[in-house]
Amino acid sequence: MAAVAESKGRGSTIIMVLYLLFLMLPIYWLLNMSLKTNNEILGAFSLWPKNPTLANYRTILTDPSWYMGYVNSLTYVVMNTAISITVALPAAYAFSRYRFLGDKHLFFWLLTNRMAPAAVFALPFFQLYSSIGLFDTHIAVALAHCLFNVPLAVWILEGFMSGVPREIDETAYIDGYSFPRFFVRIFMPLIASGIGVAAFFCFMFSWVELLLSRTLTSVDAKPIAATMTRTVSASGLDWGVLAAAGMLTIIPGALVIWFVRNYIAKGFALGRV
């Protein structure tokens, strides 16, 4: 252990500091702008706000047409995460435990949906959800995002489930557990971290996606990201409010990262490290 620690000397620290600086600078600039008034942003160029003000944040948090964007985004993201995990759990169990007719083809077909360009689906989705009267509802966006989140959840969960020895299932069945009772009482606690990681990734990809969520909504379910683009073009150059809105979209992500920080890497490898 000591050998490893030694081999990472001062050079590594400098490299990491530089890399993190590169990552943080643009975000810092956004924060900097969000604390300034428009006059200060467009007037003198300064590296930090001379008169820090929270007025931009106040604008957003007191105006329903702004803060409802956050409510809408969070609503469909949570709905999508719940749907994705619920349907993905039994499917992942099937893939990890049994062989069945066409299993490999099915698994591949699921994967292709994760790889489908959202741009291909934007217009057909619009027509599909309009025709069944779901246009501009949260559930429409939640269902649309299932296109790439369900396959992802199945993949991650399958990876974690395959790490649980099959003897546990067999012992439970011998002990007289029925399948649903075994699954909920014994199996789910065993893969709790996997469920957490899968939920995190569903949350993440639904939260960052804009093309589909913008196409499928107009007023009632408009996501915050779309609210931002519209307001910018309409009111010209309200840079301060734009920056504050951007900062507020970063916060939910930062919060959830903290909870899964030890599993992030494993999750990105689709549970297969």
Binding site: L20, L23, I27, I224, T249, I257, R261
Partner: peptide, 18 residues
Amino acid sequence: LVLMALPLLIPWNVVGTI
């Protein structure tokens, strides 16, 4: 880990805006 994962969780159009 947390700082590095941060850019991955920013909505894509906000990345563009930044």
